[in-house]
């Protein structure tokens, strides 16, 4: 088995997620060193097409996360509908059907908090567009764990509530446009 990745990126998005992610995920380079875990709010009874849609458009691998799967660099993992996605301390993904958080399962907070615990300072947390308060606590946890935090500039977001709540809970987070976030992510993980 390969060693757990040195760091990770976690992204949360809700209303307007597809367009926002379209400005970021396809720009990740083929050799992106870290895993990227993404929670998008989707109705529980729907089969999510996110992984399929982005797989065709990205240079990195894209898939739906499976329980206890070791996380690998250069791969985007989407949380499956109706399950929370968490990161285990040993760098594996795990799923949970615990209660929804902020009416959401998967929940951004649940992913971000567990990832902050597993990766500490080697974590980048990104909150994008959404009409919900999910992600605010989680982003704060990323910051408190020493990680780097970004929020989509509310005036550029399709839905402003989620970025605004995230900035209120985590004032140290940097507000940036999608293009700036994508450019930053290209520098992540050094030359690894």
């Amino acid at each position: 088995m390969t060693a757990p990745p040195a760091g990770a990126v976690v992204i949360g998005a809700s209303a307007g997620a597809f367009d926002a992610l379209s400005a970021i995920l396809p720009r990740l380079p083929h050799k992106f060193p870290w895993p990227v875990l993404v929670v998008v709010h989707i109705p529980p009874d729907k089969k999510s097409l996110m992984a399929e849609l982005f797989a065709a458009r990205c240079q990195v691998a894209v898939k739906e996360a499976e329980d206890k799967e070791p996380l690998c660099g250069g791969t985007v993992y989407f949380a499956p509908p109706d399950y929370h996605l968490l990161v285990e301390p040993d760098g594996r993904a795990s799923l949970s059907s615990e209660e929804p958080v902020h009416f959401s399962r998967p929940s951004i907070d649940v992913l971000f908090e567990s990832a902050a615990d597993a990766f500490g300072p080697a974590l980048v947390g990104v909150v994008l567009t959404g009409a919900n308060a999910d992600g605010a606590h989680g982003l704060r946890a990323v910051h408190d764990g020493g990680g780097t935090t970004f929020v989509q500039r509310p005036d550029t977001a399709q839905a402003t509530m989620m970025p605004q709540e995230a900035l209120a809970a985590c004032p140290a987070a940097r507000a940036m446009t999608l293009q700036e976030i994508a450019a930053y992510l290209n520098t992540v993980g050094g030359d690894a």
Binding site: K68, L86, V87, E88, P89, S94, S96, E98, V110, E113, S114, D117, A118
Partner: peptide, 9 residues
């Protein structure tokens, strides 16, 4: 158990 979830609870 999965520690991430136990810890959360």
């Amino acid at each position: 158990y999965s520690m991430a979830s136990v810890k959360r609870r």
